[in-house]
Design a protein around this nucleic acid. Structure first.
Lengths: 223, 223
DNA sequence: TAGATTGTTAATCGATTAACAATC
DNA sequence: TAGATTGTTAATCGATTAACAATC
């Protein structure tokens, strides 16, 4: 049996790299040509050695005493993620969340484009949202195959998510970006990336709660 | 100087707890009354001892040989996060992403409610989206103070995010949930939770890329 | 040259996993 | 009772942090 795809690159690194990328894009706008990890670290609140290590995964080599060329570094991250050739994706569920994802302009930067949406509701089918047509869900399998689409986005209610995932997989989709608050089971060889918004919210609320408690505690101590 | 709020609870645990919660809600629907970590682990693809440890943070005690009462466990997680009393929040940026967040029904479960939205665009101000009124951004500071709102959601374009955050903080907001693809700097005592969608996307695409490469490699080996 | 920065190796830290006694 | 499950303690693993040599 084949084991899980070996991620030799730590996931935290994978998550930080787009942050560097966005940051570097801003630097480029401002006209900065060279940047050091010390500098990045100050702005992004990270340790310079960690940044250096992260960047090294993309294959870039910096110049001692100088740093990195902003433009070359951006290119290096783009190549690493393969953002230079665009991944086309299908989206299922043209409700609020789905519309937001379709309308969100920011994904083209990351080589990602939603080219069609699917839904079950007759009143939604046939609409065009931000230039993206909404098609009947029944057609997704055949269209996936015909257009060789490999990425699917799920923005349905929780109860529909698993079934939709299976339709996608039947159509040959290999990567699923899931915004439904549900656990999706997928066979080996299919990557599922869950984007459950509630987790981020829970972390925020809990930290806030703990901060307030420590604050109260501090006040009492100071009295 | 006061150090960062001490998170004695590991963040991975904080992120898994809402997953358990959603899963347990489904169990309850199906009428299941008792559940063991072994069972949860099978469905959520996690190790039972880890689940046990996570749950223990909420203060619950299971019964050996039996497991946990689903209802009691749900209550325990709710109390832990404080989901029984609702946090009211303001949202800034009533574009696509903002509308999606307003329209998304799923947050009430987590004791979270967006009670007003703010924007700068005159054609948007005055609209009502899913029962939530859009007010002029200039009013946010005073309204935060008057209504004692402690949580703010940012769904603006990147360039506006920092400025909006500062307005929020000036109004007394202590927790910021940021959906803009930008780094927000906040003083100590303010929690910022970034929800940059691009990072999840990047992780997905990279894993897919690596899977395909390992697949190719495997085929070549098998020849 | 001197100082700053990179890149690498070692040490630390924290979370996950394994092992096992306690319990119903 | 026997077997399954909890809860706890120890071992492992991996990421972060620290230390330092190499370099322009």
């Amino acid at each position: 049996m084949i084991s899980k795809p070996e991620l030799s690159i730590p996931e935290p690194t994978l998550r930080r790299l787009p942050r560097y990328y966005n940051y570097l894009k801003e630097l480029l706008k401002v006209g900065r040509e060279i940047v050091s990890c010390t500098h990045i670290g100050k702005d992004l609140d990270l340790d310079p050695p960690q940044i250096r290590k992260d960047l090294a995964f993309t294959g870039i080599r910096g110049v001692p005493k100088v740093g990195y060329q902003v433009e070359v570094l951006l290119k290096s991250i783009e190549d690493f993620f393969g953002w230079n050739n665009i991944d086309e994706a299908f989206l299922v569920g043209a409700g609020n969340m789905g519309r937001a994802l379709i309308g969100y302009q920011g994904f083209s930067r990351y080589g990602f484009k939603i080219i069609a949406a699917f839904d079950n509701a007759p009143e939604i089918i046939g609409q065009t949202i931000n230039g993206v047509e909404v098609l009947p869900l029944s057609k997704i399998k055949s269209l996936c195959k015909r257009m060789n689409v490999k990425i699917g986005v799920i923005a349905t209610p929780a109860h529909a998510a698993q079934e939709v995932a299976e339709m996608m997989i039947a159509g040959g989709i290999r990567g699923i970006w899931n915004f439904a608050p549900a656990e999706i089971r997928a066979p080996e060889g299919v990557i599922v990336q869950n984007e459950n918004l509630a987790t981020g919210l829970a972390v925020l609320c809990k930290k806030l709660q703990m901060l307030q408690q420590s604050g109260k505690f501090r006040q009492e101590v100071e009295k």
